[in-house]
Design a binder for these strands. Sequence first.
DNA 1: AAACCGAGCAACCGCTCTAAG
DNA 2: TCTTAGAGCGGTTGCTCGGTT
Length: 366
Amino acid sequence: MGRAPCCDKNSVKRGPWSPEEDSKLKAYIDHFGTGGNWIALPQKIGLKRCGKSCRLRWLNYLRPNIKHGGFSEEEDNIICSLYINIDSHLMNSWSVIAAQLPGRTDNDVKNYWNTRLKKKLLGRRKQSSFSRISSTNPDSNGVEDSSSSQALSNSALERLQLHMQLQNPISFFNSPTLWPKLHPFQEKKLLQSLNESFSPLMQYAFPSPQQGDGQKVDTSRQLVDSDTRQQGHPKFSNSSVVGLENSMNGITSPDSYIPFRSGDHAMDLTVVSRAGVVEPSDAAAQPVPNFQSEFENFLNSKTYGFASQEDKIGEFGCFKEMNGSWDGMNWRSNDFETKDSSNSWDSASVLQFEGMFQDYELGYNV
DNA sequence: AAACCGAGCAACCGCTCTAAG
DNA sequence: TCTTAGAGCGGTTGCTCGGTT
């Protein structure tokens, strides 16, 4: 089924636009505007083009102040950061990113990302981290589970992968808003495989109640129980636990996989956009023995789905080249608060990010 | 010099959302 | 309330061009 086409494809011209067509379209819109009706516009000006095609040509090419090519390093950084941090299912990410880059269109940014930036970031990584995670899934018996992994959209996977590469993985777990929008079954499966990869961390984050007291241990309740939450590592917020809880339980309520549940919009957005993690009010009251060293071991272990710091440095040498220092990557961990003006990001850029994230917060605090 | 290949980009496709009737 | 058309978006296709063999 599907809706009827907007025009007769046999009677409209397709392919590249000629200068004459461009000038006709531009002259008309300059004088009369679009009239709010793109479909009727080509007939008015005698163009054998589909209205949608006219609209795209105007928006992506003929519109005043459009820039083409020649993306600056600052634009690269903005695109990378927003692509990683913008929650793909909450907003139209390419247009949001393009809105932060004057003169750039969403199509331009999308093409630039797909042809250049993505390769910079993911190029050599594609073979490694996710295949490791998928191979840890007992259901897969070492063979990638095509039904589940292919069900994840490429963009969701890329965000996931990039976020886990560029940020503290704890922060990723702590930011349910960054998890790709999945069917509860898919989410459960993904979380299971991640959980297995992260088992040392999860033990700290969600310590199991003492077993052997005759009570059946309900692992899902371990995650729900508020006391247990308090025992978890302080860097795991309650909202994260709820997200994991829902995921692990396979709850099918839409709320279980829509990250911004009513009542915690602002908090979750803050977690993702500004701080990366939620610090507890009294972290000292929640001791986790040797967590730091265990965590460092974990991060450096190639057994798990993450490259060592050394690998990361090699992997993202492009950013070292771009920014002059590996430390420039620190801001990608959303650590705006601690960002030092002496590193490779100038203060104007930081202010710009501060502003844009304030906009997002305002937008989602309604 | 010609064939091949891959990157980059413009344009298209098909879907969803939204607003008007 | 339902239907429908327009707008907008992400994903994909196909053309062009430059580099390599």
